[in-house]
C-alpha cells in the first residue's frame, strides 16, 4: 500500500502519486518498491498481460503529457514517476531481473559481488567457453542443459518460499545462470 503523506502544494492528505484535491503530482520516492508502484503484489510468477495492464493504468496518471501545462517542477516529477514505472515494468517482465530483484532487492548482482561459484563450476564454464570457439553448437547445447537444471532449481526455490522457505540460495543459482548465459549468447564479443 502507498503511504499517506501530505500534498506539498495544498497540504491535504494524499495517497498515491497524484493529489486528489489539487491535482499536483507528488515527489516520487527515490527507491520505490517496483511491484507496489504498479499496484501489484511481489511474486515470481507473473502474468505479463496483467503487468502491462497495471503499467498502462499507472502511466496514464503520471505521464509528463498529463502535466504539459503544469510547472517545470511538476513535469520533472512526472518524468521521474514515469521513469520508475517503466523500470518496474522492465524488471518485472524479465525472468532473470525479477528473480534477482525478489531475492536481493536489486535487479542485477552488485558490481562488487565477489561471491565466486565453486571452482568446479567455474572450470566447467571456462571449458564451455573454450569449446564455444571450436564447436559453438555443442557448447551452447551443453550450456542450455545446465541452464534448464538451474532454472528448475530456481523455480523450486521460489515455490518453497511461498510455503515459508527462504531465498538465500537464489543469488548463487542466479550467478550460475549468468555465467551460462554468456556462454549461450557468445559473451561480450
Amino acid at each position: 500500500m502507498l503511504a499517506v503523506t501530505q500534498c506539498w502544494q495544498c497540504r491535504e492528505p494524499v495517497q498515491g502519486p497524484v493529489c486528489a484535491g489539487c491535482g499536483a503530482i507528488q515527489p516520487p520516492p527515490a527507491h520505490p518498491e517496483l511491484f507496489t508502484i504498479l499496484g501489484l503484489s511481489p511474486s515470481y510468477t507473473i502474468d505479463r498481460k496483467a503487468v502491462d495492464k497495471a503499467w498502462r493504468g499507472a502511466s496514464r496518471k503520471v505521464h509528463p503529457d498529463r502535466f504539459a501545462g503544469a510547472s517545470a517542477v511538476q513535469r520533472r516529477m512526472a518524468l521521474q514517476w514515469t521513469a520508475h514505472l517503466n523500470r518496474a515494468r522492465k524488471v518485472i517482465r524479465d525472468d532473470t531481473q525479477r528473480a534477482w530483484y525478489l531475492a536481493t532487492g536489486s535487479e542485477r548482482p552488485g558490481e562488487r559481488d565477489k561471491n565466486q561459484p565453486d571452482p568446479a563450476f567455474l572450470e566447467q564454464v571456462f571449458e564451455l567457453n573454450m569449446l564455444r570457439a571450436e564447436d559453438p553448437a555443442a557448447a551452447i547445447e551443453r550450456a542450455r542443459g545446465l541452464q534448464s537444471t538451474e532454472q528448475e532449481r530456481l523455480s523450486a526455490l521460489f515455490q518453497s518460499q511461498a510455503q515459508g522457505g527462504t531465498l538465500d540460495g537464489a543469488p548463487a543459482i542466479l550467478g550460475r545462470l549468468n555465467y551460462l548465459r554468456t556462454v549461450i549468447d557468445g559473451g561480450h564479443e
Binding site: A3, T5, Q6, C7, W8, R11, Q26, P27, P28, P29, A30, H31, V73, R76, M77, Q80
Partner: peptide, 19 residues
Amino acid sequence: KLALEGQDALEVLDVLDRS
C-alpha cells in the same frame, strides 16, 4: 521536508537537488 517526511536524508537531498 514536509512531503518527504520519513524518507532517508540522502534521498531528500536528492529530490531537493532535482527540484
